[in-house]
Computed example of a mutant assay.
Amino acid sequence: MRVKNKSTELAEADLTPMIDMTFQLIAFFMVLINFAQTESHDLVKLPSSQLIKPPDQPFEFPIMLHITQDARVFLGGKDYTAETLSSGLRAELAVARAQDMGPKDANVIIRAHRNTAAGEVQEVIRACQALEFVNFGLRAKEDLGRKGEG
């Protein structure tokens, strides 16, 4: 008896949808990680407040300043003091001017550690005002535990 050789064909799967989905997930996580880095800093623990409220609308040109407990100021991942902050702010102004905006169009958002001295925050605000920034926002963490207590 003769044995027949069965020809086996290799089945090929179309990998295009899977590769497309992989690139979409990579792009999604890159955007997500970028937002998370600008909105927080490991060395800054925000104070709690019952009086905070979220902004009515997103800021058009936000400049995020992170002030640590030992008065170091982080702007765009770089470390400054209140005295040296103007060089970083000038770089932000250059970006704003490239978009036909000025210091009055920017919103300086200050995220200060809960144990930072108020005088240190005032020095940072003075450094911003010296470059004609006028719009400021202070970030705090909502205190949910004490709401409704009288």
Rank of each mutant, 00 (worst) to 15 (best):
A82M: 07
T84A: 05
L43F: 07
D70Y: 00
F59P: 00
S87W: 08
G88E: 11
Q69N: 14
M64L: 15
T68N: 11
S48G: 07
L46F: 10
G88Y: 07
P47M: 05
V44E: 01
M64F: 04
V73N: 13
Y80Q: 08
G76C: 05
L43G: 03
P58M: 08
Y80D: 11
T68G: 04
L65V: 04
F59H: 07
L75G: 09
S86N: 05
M64I: 11
L46V: 06
Q57L: 09
T68E: 08
K53W: 04
Q57E: 14
P62W: 05
G77S: 12
A71M: 10
L85C: 08
Q50P: 02
K78C: 07
G76W: 05
F59R: 05
L89K: 07
K53D: 06
Q50W: 01
S49Y: 00
G76Y: 10
P58F: 04
Q57N: 08
F74W: 10
D70H: 01
S86K: 14
T81A: 04
T84K: 09
L85A: 15
G76S: 11
Y80T: 06
L65T: 04
L43N: 12
F59W: 06
Q57A: 05
L43E: 15
P58A: 08
A82P: 04
L85P: 12
L89G: 08
L51H: 12
L65G: 08
D42T: 06
D79K: 09
T81N: 03
I67A: 08
P47R: 06
Y80G: 03
S48Y: 15
T84Y: 06
R72A: 13
S48W: 11
E83S: 15
T68I: 06
L51C: 10
I67Q: 09
G77I: 06
Q50C: 14
K53H: 15
K53Q: 15
F59N: 03
L85W: 09
G77Y: 06
I63Q: 05
L43H: 13
